[in-house]
Structures are given as C-alpha cells and as structure tokens.
Amino acid sequence: MNADIGALGGVDPHDVLGVRRGASPQQVTRAFHREALRGGHPDTGGDAYAFRRLVVARDALLAVRTSPGGGTPATPAAAPRAAETDRRPPHAPGPVRPAPPSSDASALPLIVLLFLAFVVIPHVLLAIVLVVVP
C-alpha cells in the first residue's frame, strides 16, 4: 500500500469512494476517477487533503485485492505501512523525473539541409555561371 490508511481518519475506504464491499478493481478505479473529477483533484481547484484521502482509499482497496505471494487476498494489516517506508508529508512532491530528451539532435539534419540549400548551392551555381558565361 502506497499510502497510510491512517490518513482516512478511521473512515472506511469504501465510504470515501462510494463503492460497495467486494467491488472489482475496475469499479474502484472508476469510482476514484469519478470522485477526482467531481472536484477532488488539486489541479481542478479541489482540496489537496481531500484528493489525498481519495488516493489512500483507492490504494487501500486495490491492495486488498492483490497479495504479495499471489495466493489469497492480502489484508490491509499484511500490506507494508507507508508510515514505515515513506516519511514524506502528504503535500510533498513526488520523485523528480528526468527531463525528456531534447529535440535539438533531430533538428540538426534539417539545419544542415537548409544551409546547403540556401547558402552552398546558390554559391556553386553562381560560380559555374560566372565561369561559363564570358
């Protein structure tokens, strides 16, 4: 589980997302997206704390569906606690992602081609014309 279930304040994750017990992972994911679109996402003007609760509830319900060994479903107590592994506060940014590769390398052949077309070729043609025409 990536989030601390204690962030829900004792509220059942099913109630936070509005799904019934035994809901499929697809239903949990759809409920999470529905609640995030209703104003729970900070990018759309929602509250960051409310969105964090949605994320915690989603992660808790999806973690119950899978177990580390692939056998019976794991319980939230069997899943590793985020408080033990992740000491960042809920509002801290995630890991820093590297910048995408620059497109300057793909522009180099175009620059060389344009240089040849507008500078070198006209000068060569002008030199030929001056030599041939007396």
Rank of each mutant, 00 (worst) to 15 (best):
M1V: 13
N2K: 14
N2F: 11
A3F: 13
D4Y: 07
I5P: 00
I5L: 12
G6M: 11
G6A: 13
G10C: 05
V11T: 07
V11N: 01
D12S: 14
P13E: 05
P13Y: 01
H14L: 11
H14P: 07
D15S: 09
D15H: 07
L17S: 02
L17K: 01
L17E: 00
R20K: 01
R20F: 02
R21L: 12
G22N: 05
A23K: 02
S24T: 12
P25W: 09
P25F: 08
V28P: 00
A31I: 04
A31M: 08
F32T: 00
H33L: 15
R34W: 05
E35G: 02
L37Y: 09
R38I: 02
G39S: 04
G40Q: 01
G40R: 01
G40W: 00
D43V: 13
T44I: 11
T44F: 11
G45M: 06
G45E: 01
Y49K: 14
A50I: 06
R52C: 05
R53W: 00
R53L: 07
V56E: 02
A57E: 00
A57I: 04
R58G: 03
D59K: 07
A60Q: 01
A60D: 01
L61F: 01
L61T: 00
L62R: 03
L62N: 05
L62E: 03
A63I: 06
T66G: 04
G69E: 08
G70N: 08
G71N: 03
P73R: 10
A74T: 07
A74R: 05
T75V: 15
P76G: 03
P76K: 04
P76E: 02
A77W: 04
A77R: 03
A77Q: 02
A78I: 11
A78R: 10
A79D: 08
P80H: 07
R81Q: 11
R81D: 07
R81A: 11
A82L: 08
A83W: 11
T85Y: 04
T85V: 14
D86S: 12
R88H: 10
P89D: 08
P90E: 02
P90G: 03
P90S: 08
H91L: 14
A92S: 10
A92V: 10
P93I: 06
G94Q: 03
G94D: 04
P95H: 09
R97H: 10
R97D: 07
R97T: 13
P98G: 08
P98A: 12
A99R: 10
P101Q: 14
S102I: 13
S103A: 15
D104I: 15
S106N: 09
L108C: 06
P109L: 10
P109F: 01
I111C: 06
V112P: 00
L113Y: 04
L114G: 08
F115R: 12
L116C: 15
V120C: 08
I121A: 13
L125I: 15
L125C: 14
L125A: 14
L126A: 13
L126S: 13
A127S: 13
I128F: 15
I128A: 15
I128K: 15
V129K: 11
L130D: 08
V132A: 15
V132I: 14
V132N: 08
V133A: 07
